[in-house]
Amino acid sequence: MESVKNIEKLLEKYLEAETTIAEENRLQEYFTQDEVPAHLEEYRPMFQYFEIAKQERFTKEVPLKPGRNKSYLQWASIAAVAVLLVGVFLKQPATPSLEEEYTAEELQSAQMALAIFSKNFNKGTDGIQYLKEFETTTNKFLNNE
């Protein structure tokens, strides 16, 4: 067991931050025993605390993403964009224009059909206008009553 004289000397060095790790361990050991001289009592909680503080552990999991390489992903995304762009450019000229696909007559008859359709459609919407008018009038009656 260390003599009190020795411990006092070590403590002096300790407070001046001149002790080595080995010497600090000696102090630690000395002050973790149950009985220490009364005039050194204030050091006990200090060294006991250091001893116990060492045992605290980090218990949380760290969610590491499993080994997919970042650079691999980068290159993959660049490649994907490139493929997409090439695809778009190659596809465009492949769609034939209307003039190429149909004859002039066919186009004309299609236009006519569309014209007739829109004319009739407009008639229908005109009819709806009347309906609306009808509704406002009935509302008038209802409100008057």
Binding site: L15, A17, E18, E41, E42, M46
Partner: peptide, 21 residues
């Protein structure tokens, strides 16, 4: 600088413990 800071810290802790004691 580390030794200076450490010495101050240790002394400060001791002071407080004596007060408490």
């Amino acid at each position: 600088a580390i030794r200076v800071a450490l010495s101050r810290a240790r002394k400060a802790v001791r002071e407080e413990l004596i007060k408490k004691h």
